[in-house]
């Protein structure tokens, strides 16, 4: 029931997002006809093309038309690349998704062991060392990290060639290898944040009465941490990981630029520069849907983890 409600709210959010972005592109000067014909176009030609493209209709009518197309997967034609936007997107989307998923995976693999160890041995040399490493890594913007990786792992150690991209169809293994380094650049700062968040959530749990009860039963610290505290801490950690997942997606936009990955991010940046609004609009919609989906997933998990919320829902 609540999930259904959430789902409806999600559809609403996406619709609102699409409408707002559609509206925004209508108010800015220079419409599609202008872009297509260039600045030297005669007013008559402009008028004609506007009529032809249906740009003189009221905004709502045009939005409805656009939405109808979008629902069928038709986002119009890219003015720059002269090809349907959907086709363009379907080429770029897999790379971005793979990059985001790979970096999220790296975050999880790095964050959980480190976070648990730091919480278990709070105040030890190990914990203090990683607290400092964390603080520092969090301060590094992912694209600068990407540049550092390019310099040290790419140019100095020659593990890969900076700027080169390999597509999946060419060579899957090589493709993954080339995605690994940008994924690392995205993942490290997020992993540092996650370690910190996980640790602090666990430490908040540490002083709770139920932990004392569990210790009173004769459970060891490690066992209490894994079987009791982690379950409680996960309630807030899951929400945080949702944010991290969305950020991994956003991070890929900038980092794609550093490593020359052919993904949505690069396309978006190029399209903004070229005023290729059909593409920009479609990408914004795609990213919006992705973020909303992640949030829905988090919500479902959250309900599974916390019996108090679960009962309210039923």
């Amino acid at each position: 029931m609540t999930i259904l409600k959430k789902f409806l709210a999600m559809v609403g959010t996406v619709l609102l997002l699409s409408f707002l972005s559609f509206l925004a592109f209508q108010v800015i000067p220079g419409d599609a006809a202008q872009v297509q014909l260039g600045t030297n176009a005669t007013p008559e030609a402009l008028l004609e093309l506007r009529e032809e493209l249906g740009l003189n209709d009221p905004v709502l009518v045009r939005y409805a038309r656009w939405l109808k197309g979008a629902l069928q997967g038709d986002f119009g034609v890219s003015t720059r690349y002269r090809m349907p936007v959907s086709e363009l997107l379907s080429q770029m989307l897999p790379n971005t998704l793979a990059l985001a998923l790979l970096s999220l995976l790296l975050v999880l693999v790095l964050a959980f062991p480190l976070g648990l160890l730091c919480a278990r041995f709070e105040g030890s040399l190990f914990d203090r060392f990683f607290t400092w490493v964390n603080q520092t890594v969090m301060a590094v913007p992912s694209f600068f990290l990407g540049i550092l990786i390019s310099i040290f792992l790419g140019i100095v150690l020659r593990l890969f060639v900076p700027g080169r991209a390999v597509s999946w169809s060419e060579n899957p293994a090589e493709c993954l290898r080339y995605l690994f380094f940008p994924a690392l650049a995205i993942a490290l700062p997020k992993a540092a944040m996650s370690v910190r968040f996980l640790k602090s959530s666990l430490i908040t749990e540490k002083n709770k009465d139920y932990v004392r009860t569990a210790r009173g039963k004769g459970m060891s610290r490690t066992r209490v941490l894994l079987t009791q505290m982690l379950g409680n801490a996960m309630i807030s950690v899951v929400t945080f990981l949702g944010v991290v997942a969305a950020e991994a997606l956003a991070g890929s936009i900038v980092v794609e630029q550093v490593f020359g990955v052919n993904g949505l991010g690069r396309l978006l940046v190029a399209s903004i520069a070229n005023r290729d609004y059909n593409v920009v609009q479609a990408i914004i919609l795609y990213l919006g849907i992705a973020v909303v989906l992640v949030n829905l997933l988090v919500d479902v998990l959250y309900r599974r983890l916390d019996p108090r919320v679960r009962r309210q829902a039923s």
Partner: peptide, 26 residues
């Protein structure tokens, strides 16, 4: 380790706050 064996088996404790002394998610 010795203490862990004693706690819960040889000596046990009941606390003031029954509201928070049990793990809420289990």
């Amino acid at each position: 380790e010795t203490m862990q064996k004693l706690r819960g088996a040889d000596m046990a404790m009941v606390f003031q706050e029954p509201m928070t002394s049990l793990n809420p998610v289990r």
